[in-house]
Simulated assay, not measured.
Amino acid sequence: MDTLNQIALPLCGGLAIAGLVLAYMLFRRRGVASGLRATAWALLPVAAYLTGALSALWTIGATVVGFVTNLVLNPMVWAGVALAGLSAVLFIVSGVMRGRRLRKSADPAVAAEAERPAVGAKPQQAPGARPAAGEPKRAQKAGPKQAAKDDDFSDIEELLKRRGIS
């Protein structure tokens, strides 16, 4: 760290001087706002040196570079990455297989649960039965495809009529 302190002061001072020259040029060409922003940037290296933050930033940077270098160049790490990928693929495949098995299950409780209508759902009518009196006339006269299509919009039409919107 002693070497860092010997190199850091001249380096930070040089960066600050170069930034202040650039800030002066920006004052003249682009105005006060650009010049002040450049001055603020130019003062940061000296501030980092004086507060001791520069050594902390150096340590963080060296640690990150060391971690990335060891990650990229280490075959054991790549073996671990490959195993993690294989594990993820196996989780996905087993989930798909389990879902298919549950759908094809011959368990009577599961089959009965699937066939039971949801709470508040309309009871299903037999194919030849007449529609109830509350259903729209178009659904009574049309074929099965048209009746299903009209039935989807009949609730909306009824709501609009109640609100006075045609």
Rank of each mutant, 00 (worst) to 15 (best):
Q125P: 08
A147N: 02
F153I: 08
T69V: 11
K104M: 12
G61S: 13
R100I: 13
L50Y: 13
I60H: 09
R103E: 15
G128S: 12
W78E: 12
T69D: 10
R103T: 13
S94N: 11
W78L: 12
G80H: 03
E135H: 02
S87M: 08
D107G: 05
P75M: 03
T59R: 11
S94V: 11
W58E: 10
L44K: 06
Y49A: 14
K122T: 05
E115Y: 04
T59L: 13
P123A: 13
G80R: 02
L57C: 10
P108G: 06
W58A: 15
A111L: 14
P123G: 05
P127K: 03
V81T: 07
A82I: 11
G120N: 03
V65F: 11
L44E: 08
P144A: 08
A79N: 14
A56I: 12
V77K: 01
A106R: 09
K104W: 08
Q140F: 11
A139I: 01
R116S: 05
R138I: 10
G95D: 11
P127Q: 03
A111S: 11
K122E: 07
P144T: 07
S154A: 15
R98D: 15
F91L: 15
M97P: 00
A114D: 07
A139Q: 06
A114Y: 05
N74H: 02
D152K: 01
K145L: 14
A47D: 10
K122L: 08
K141H: 07
A148V: 00
A139F: 00
G120Y: 02
L102W: 09
V68D: 04
R138S: 06
Q125I: 09
A111Y: 01
Y49H: 14
Q146K: 06
A56F: 09
D107E: 10
A109N: 12
L43F: 12
S154L: 00
L50R: 10
K141I: 14
G134E: 08
V68W: 08
R130C: 04
R130A: 15
A114W: 06
A118T: 05
P144S: 07
E115G: 04
T51C: 10
V72T: 07
W58S: 14
A109D: 15
P123Q: 06
A82K: 09
K104D: 15
K141V: 14
V46P: 08
V89R: 03
N70T: 03
K104Q: 14
R101E: 13
L83H: 11
P127H: 05
S55D: 09
Q146T: 09
T69N: 09
A111T: 05
F67K: 05
K104S: 15
G134Y: 00
W58Q: 08
R100L: 15
G66V: 02
A147M: 03
K149F: 00
G66T: 05
A148Y: 00
A106Q: 11
K149L: 02
G120F: 01
P131W: 00
A129L: 01
A62H: 07
G143M: 00
A132M: 02
G52S: 07
L43A: 15
P45V: 04
L71M: 14
V110F: 07
G52N: 06
P136H: 04
R100D: 15
T59E: 14
K149A: 05
P131M: 01
D151V: 03
G134M: 01
P136K: 00
G143T: 00
A53C: 05
W78N: 09
W58H: 12
P75A: 08
V64E: 03
G80C: 04
V77Y: 14
G52L: 06
